[in-house]
C-alpha cells in the first residue's frame, strides 16, 4: 500500500459524478471520475489500491458490463454499484456477481462513506 488509494467514479451523469467527487474529497479521499466505462478503462491501471463506484445504467457499456470485464481481467477491485432505478432484480444480480455493495440514489451519505472506507480497507 505504497500509493494513496483512489475512488474511481464512473457515471454518465455529470452532476452525480461531480457531487460524489466533491463529497468524497471533502472527507479526504482521492477521487477520479469518468463519464463512461470506456473512459475508465482508457485510464485505469490494474493493481492499484482503490475501489469503484459505478452507475448501473449507462449507454454503450453499463455497470454490469464493466464488472464482467474486470472479472474477465481477474481484477479484484471492489465495485460499489449506484443506481437511480429501484429495480431489485438488478441489484441482486449485481451482488451475486460479486459486487461489493449496491446503493440507490440519492445516496445515504453515511452508509455510503462507511461502505467506501470498508472497500478501501479491504483492498
Amino acid at each position: 500500500m505504497t500509493a494513496e488509494p483512489t475512488v474511481y467514479v464512473v457515471d454518465d451523469e455529470q452532476a452525480v459524478r461531480a457531487s460524489i467527487k466533491f463529497f468524497l474529497e471533502t472527507i479526504g479521499l482521492n477521487v477520479k471520475t469518468y463519464g463512461s466505462v470506456q473512459d475508465f478503462f482508457d485510464d485505469y491501471e490494474s493493481g492499484k489500491a482503490g475501489c469503484l463506484v459505478v452507475d448501473v445504467c449507462m449507454p454503450n457499456m453499463s455497470g454490469p458490463d464493466l464488472q464482467k470485464e474486470l472479472a474477465a481481467r481477474k481484477d479484484p477491485i471492489p465495485i460499489i454499484f449506484i443506481t437511480g432505478h429501484s429495480d431489485e432484480t438488478v441489484s441482486e444480480a449485481a451482488l451475486n456477481s460479486g459486487a461489493f455493495a449496491f446503493f440507490h440514489k440519492p445516496l445515504q451519505s453515511e452508509e455510503f462513506v462507511e461502505c467506501i472506507r470498508k472497500a478501501l480497507n479491504r483492498f
Binding site: 451523469e13 452532476a15 452525480v16 461531480a18 457531487s19 460524489i20 466533491f22 463529497f23 449506484i82 437511480g84 440514489k105 440519492p106 445516496l107 451519505s109
Partner: peptide, 11 residues
C-alpha cells in the same frame, strides 16, 4: 429526478 437529487444530497 434522482440524478439532480443525488447531487443535491451529496453536496
Amino acid at each position: 429526478i434522482n440524478q439532480p437529487l443525488t447531487a443535491v444530497v451529496n453536496y
